[in-house]
Amino acid sequence: MFKLILMISLFFLTLSMMVALYRVIKGPSMPDRVQALDTISISLIGGVAICSVLFHTHALLEIILILGILSFVGTIAFARFIERGVVIERKRIK
């Protein structure tokens, strides 16, 4: 029973990822795509968590953390890029 619930939730997560993927491909503007990618990575975190429960292991928990950090950093980077044109600003000392 528990396993079935996990499988169903995994299915829905996959479905939401598909929908987000549609937005990534179609998305008329850049911010749309970035948002969709962020959504996908959050769904991935959920998927990994469910997997670790399914496999009865806590070895995958670091992946969740790293995915979280990466998606945060990635989204910020994209946001800066869209806003200012560069990701890392150069400060020239003369």
């Binding site: 990994v48 997997c51 496999f55 292991t57 070895a59 995958l60 670091e62 992946i63 995915l67 990466l70």
Partner: peptide
Amino acid sequence: VIFRAPDLALTQL
């Protein structure tokens, strides 16, 4: 992840 290689998955990401 599915093949239970957490270190690889971390690095790969």
